[in-house]
Design a protein around this nucleic acid. Sequence first.
DNA 1: GGTTGACCTGTTACGTTATTACCTCCATGC
DNA 2: GCATGGAGGTAATAACGTAACAGGTCAACC
Lengths: 132, 132
Amino acid sequence: MTPVRRRTLEILLESHRAMGAYDVLERLSQDGYGNQPPVAYRALDFLVEQGLAHRLQRLNAFAACLSPDRDHAPAFLICRSCDRVAETDAPVLRAAFRETAAERGFKVERLTVEAVGLCPACGDGDDTGADA
Amino acid sequence: MTPVRRRTLEILLESHRAMGAYDVLERLSQDGYGNQPPVAYRALDFLVEQGLAHRLQRLNAFAACLSPDRDHAPAFLICRSCDRVAETDAPVLRAAFRETAAERGFKVERLTVEAVGLCPACGDGDDTGADA
DNA sequence: GGTTGACCTGTTACGTTATTACCTCCATGC
DNA sequence: GCATGGAGGTAATAACGTAACAGGTCAACC
Ligand SMILES: [Zn+2]
Ligand SMILES: [Zn+2]
Ligand SMILES: [Zn+2]
Ligand SMILES: [Zn+2]
């Protein structure tokens, strides 16, 4: 864990939401680090490899892992209204899927499970979202 | 269903694999249709909305649906070696996930399930893949 | 001490993917 | 005729991502 990487993780943690690589990069450069894309992508890729952050395919974005300590099988709930992302663990689901795939001869190495919908705050009778 | 949209679907069907929007666009323009990105993206978005095609988030690509007739809950098996994509139905998985999400107050509207790994052809003792 | 090699960071330049904005055409309904 | 709205064409640009190279640090090894 180096300064850039640590700072990158802090940025993700502070934001409490998914951030694009370029958003992270802007913060990093404000803090005196490099201002070119590879700086952010390298740090983010490292964090993802280490299980300290996750990549959200549907958003082209990254978010800090909420339980980096334990080995887990994350699934994501992405609110289309307020853009907030909830990380949840779905080990049973993943095991089941892995098995289904195995029946077809497919070896699953990485599994992406991402749901888009409405979070509790945004789904309770209003569609506008709580952007805060 | 209009000419561009129909042709777009044909292109996806003919290729038997996932295609990037720009690949589709190139074929469309060869056939005398527009050669600017929105032409392809609009047609592809339409097909996805209608359930005639799917979008593969991990590949930034699109593929024709293999069973567009029935309402289904697709999951994808993406081979990292030969890039082939298999579409499979996972209704149980999705129902279970929907329920898990509901417990947390989240309303799932769209669910992405994509696995990356090795297909039967590429996993049987070799890692090189059958690119054909 | 000097050299080597691994690893990290910075930068240039570029490639790929996706969207915004604006315009034309044409079918529909009045 | 004339609005209306969907569809497609085009230009321009935004957003996302990577390859390739240059320098710097540090520990290992001779
Ligand atoms: Zn996590
Ligand atoms: Zn919300
Ligand atoms: Zn399908
Ligand atoms: Zn394969």
